[in-house]
Computed example of a mutant assay.
Amino acid sequence: MWVTSSTSNVKTPTAIALGNFDGIHLGHRQVIKPIIELEAEYIPTLVTFTPHPQEFFTGKTRQLLTPLTEKVKRLESLKIRQLVRLPFDSSLASLGPQAFVEDILVKQLNVKYISVGQDFRFGKGREGNAQMLQELANNLGIFVYITKLKTLVSGESGLRISSSRIRQCLAVGNVRQAKEMLSYPYSLEGMVVRGQQVGRTIGFPTANLQIPADKLLPRRGVYCVRVILATEEVIKGVINIGSRPTVNGQVPTVEVHLLDWSGNLYATFLRVQLEKFLRSEQKFPSLDALKNQITQDCMIARQTLSQDV
């Protein structure tokens, strides 16, 4: 997939899905679907913004459900052929809706077809909405498809699917509902780096994952997980996300223990799918107490992951 932040390098003509698309959840997939169906005529292109407009206006770093590398993998699996990351700066922020359509979408991206969500907003001060985009583009001979908001069909039926709601789920450890909205398990991935090796001393060696700095971490605590190795082998495991207060840890770490598996994982790439929150991070009075709790965690994880097939 072609990835660019410069409109001078864009491959045209394009059929675009326009938005931020953090997470590539079920709602996003509905917006993306129409442009994939036009691949015989136009280049299916996702157009997004970097940094996120909210980050630009607040000055606060925004953690992402899908950092760039992960987003590219998911988009490739959906047959998106191009990702355009428009630099969101003061110049772009000051463009009114009509100027954005004419100067960016038409002149620079050579857009022939646009797909957006029902709640899409654009232009200076978020003045433009999906209907305005449709009117402006139609006047220029460009068709705009507006996708209705996606809701859950099970569990909390009628609950709107959004990146914000997924973030709320992850903040409380509800990875199961996050999975339902994403259509895939929320995952943490990265290279295995050397840690303090405390786990080895109590019989539970762990792989210390180096997660991208802009990846959103869920609620601190212990989860049962499925670990995908570089060979695509899937191993059951438990993961601890936190600062390890029992051993006076200071820096948050992501450490995964693989159940019934042994081997050297240093400098290998792992993808860890979060399946269920088990317990909050806590400080134990001794290493023996910690060891006993981890033993229980592993037992529960085996049972849970054996049931979830």
Results as ranks from 00 to 15, higher is better:
6 S>M: 04
10 V>E: 04
11 K>F: 02
11 K>T: 06
11 K>H: 04
13 P>Q: 12
14 T>W: 00
17 A>S: 13
17 A>V: 05
23 G>V: 12
24 I>Y: 12
25 H>F: 02
30 Q>G: 11
31 V>M: 06
34 P>F: 02
36 I>M: 11
38 L>A: 10
38 L>K: 15
39 E>L: 01
39 E>V: 09
39 E>S: 11
43 I>E: 10
46 L>P: 11
48 T>Q: 03
51 P>E: 14
52 H>V: 04
52 H>L: 01
52 H>W: 00
53 P>Q: 04
57 F>P: 12
60 K>G: 06
68 L>Q: 15
71 K>V: 13
71 K>A: 12
72 V>F: 08
72 V>Q: 13
78 L>Q: 01
84 V>W: 01
85 R>G: 02
87 P>M: 03
88 F>A: 06
88 F>L: 03
92 L>H: 10
95 L>Q: 01
96 G>K: 05
99 A>V: 07
101 V>E: 00
103 D>W: 03
104 I>Y: 03
104 I>V: 07
107 K>G: 06
108 Q>Y: 02
109 L>D: 07
109 L>N: 03
112 K>A: 01
114 I>Q: 01
118 Q>A: 12
119 D>M: 00
119 D>R: 03
121 R>S: 13
123 G>H: 05
124 K>I: 05
126 R>M: 06
129 N>H: 05
132 M>G: 04
133 L>G: 12
133 L>P: 11
135 E>R: 09
137 A>I: 06
147 T>G: 04
148 K>F: 11
149 L>E: 15
151 T>D: 02
152 L>I: 09
153 V>I: 14
153 V>Q: 14
154 S>L: 12
156 E>P: 02
157 S>H: 06
158 G>R: 03
160 R>G: 11
162 S>D: 13
162 S>K: 14
162 S>F: 10
164 S>T: 12
166 I>M: 00
172 V>K: 05
174 N>R: 05
175 V>P: 12
175 V>H: 10
177 Q>K: 11
178 A>R: 02
178 A>C: 01
178 A>M: 00
180 E>I: 03
183 S>L: 04
189 E>G: 14
190 G>K: 13
191 M>S: 14
192 V>D: 01
195 G>P: 08
196 Q>G: 09
199 G>L: 05
199 G>H: 07
200 R>E: 15
200 R>N: 15
205 P>W: 13
209 L>I: 14
209 L>Q: 09
210 Q>N: 15
212 P>W: 01
214 D>Q: 07
219 R>Y: 14
220 R>H: 13
223 Y>W: 07
226 R>A: 04
227 V>C: 09
229 L>H: 12
231 T>Q: 15
233 E>C: 07
235 I>G: 12
235 I>Q: 14
235 I>T: 14
238 V>K: 12
242 G>S: 08
242 G>C: 05
245 P>H: 01
247 V>M: 09
247 V>T: 14
255 E>A: 09
257 H>I: 06
257 H>A: 08
259 L>R: 06
259 L>D: 04
264 N>W: 00
265 L>P: 09
268 T>Y: 03
271 R>K: 15
274 L>M: 05
276 K>Y: 06
277 F>P: 09
278 L>V: 09
283 K>Q: 11
283 K>A: 08
286 S>W: 01
287 L>S: 07
292 N>W: 07
294 I>Q: 09
295 T>D: 12
296 Q>H: 14
297 D>W: 08
301 A>R: 11
309 V>G: 08
